[in-house]
Simulated scan of single mutants.
Amino acid sequence: MATIGASRLNPIHPATVLAKVRRYEAAGFRAWPAAAVHYDGTWVVRLTAGHPAKRLNSINPLDPGDVHHLAERIARAGRRFEAYGRPLTFRMSPLAGAALSRHLDAEGWSRFDESMVMRMPLTKASVENVIDQIPLKDIGRFVSAALKVHDADPLLRPGLSEIIGAIQPEAGLFASERGDEALATLICVHDGDLAGLFDIATDKSVRRQGHGRQLILSALKWARLRGAREAWLQVEADNAPALSLYASLGFEEVYRYHYRRLPST
């Protein structure tokens, strides 16, 4: 599949290309739901008081041609973000288009945290000899494990629990544990023929020991048995160890996105 880089946007993408991007973007919204969602034209404004993640607190443009009254709409969105105590942030996929990018450039918006969307046909997943692993049913137990391996603020527990509880497609909560010690965690969201992998992390004390790889393979086997035909994930473009792992498993880049903010925020 051809790579579509948000950093290499052409003024016009073929409709078939944008349709592929929209498919993954919609799956991502369903798999990692924001607490509040507003629409301004084809901009999806996602806000979440209980969790600061950028993908849960950002404007997501879905049509390159929707660039009317930009200053007014950005100001309106800014008031929403201010009410939530979040910095006004755009998440720029290829669906954002070149015209909006030029406008933000002209206004001095900074660009940061480029990420990749990667995919792999599950026919390529070598899971035949992988031990079956049953996902956790206890959200609280999973959240405890995830906060540990991410070395995250315990105050995020209520927000992360709310997000996981709000996932509408079937979600498998996977954790690799040694006794009571969490080693790695991930969420696999089975949505039709797609299996999205989210929040993948390994505790820093046991990295490069294969725990993440084995957990991913267990999740892919679980999803394939449920009818998923394609796995996909999002990863920061400068995360070299993760990119190496995903490439070794057979994942390939589909497109990129990045975030934009005013320097003062």
Rank of each mutant, 00 (worst) to 15 (best):
L173F: 02
R213I: 01
R119H: 12
V17C: 08
V127Q: 04
L245Y: 10
S264L: 08
L233H: 10
A19Q: 14
R30S: 13
T3N: 10
P14L: 11
D153F: 09
T42Q: 09
I134H: 12
L186H: 01
G250S: 09
M116H: 14
P14T: 08
A231S: 15
L47C: 10
L155E: 14
L183T: 00
I139A: 02
N239A: 11
H38F: 13
L155I: 08
A99E: 15
D151W: 00
G196D: 03
G172A: 06
L147W: 08
M118Q: 14
G108E: 03
R226Y: 00
A96V: 06
P14D: 15
A106P: 01
I216P: 05
M116T: 07
R55I: 07
Y246V: 04
A34M: 04
A152Y: 09
W222D: 03
T185R: 00
G5E: 05
L70V: 14
K20I: 13
W222S: 02
T48W: 04
A98M: 12
R30I: 01
P135V: 06
A152R: 06
I187F: 00
R208Q: 15
I139E: 05
E25T: 12
A219E: 03
A35K: 04
N129Q: 14
L243R: 15
E253P: 12
H69R: 15
L183A: 04
D180Y: 01
I167W: 13
K204D: 11
S176M: 12
H69Y: 12
L122P: 03
H69T: 13
E72T: 13
F90T: 04
G165I: 11
G5K: 00
L262A: 13
G196N: 05
D66Q: 06
N57D: 09
L155Y: 01
A223Y: 06
L18H: 11
A106G: 14
L95K: 03
G140L: 06
P94Y: 09
N129S: 15
H51M: 10
P94D: 01
V206P: 09
N60F: 01
P158Y: 00
D238Q: 13
G78A: 06
E177H: 00
D66I: 08
D191E: 11
R261I: 07
A231T: 09
L47R: 14
S115H: 13
Y24E: 00
R224H: 13
E181I: 14
D66H: 12
A2Y: 00
D132R: 07
V117W: 03
Q214A: 12
L95D: 02
E230P: 07
L233C: 11
L18S: 07
N60C: 13
L100Y: 05
G140F: 00
F174E: 02
R30G: 12
P135K: 11
F198K: 07
A53G: 15
I139D: 01
P33T: 00
H211T: 04
R178N: 11
H51A: 11
H103L: 03
R46D: 01
Q214F: 03
D153H: 12
A77E: 05
L70R: 05
E230M: 10
E230F: 07
T89I: 07
L225N: 14
L197W: 01
V45M: 04
L88I: 00
I4L: 15
T3Y: 09
A184M: 05
H190P: 01
E252F: 02
R22Y: 00
G97D: 04
G172F: 02
Y257N: 03
A152K: 02
D199K: 09
V130M: 01
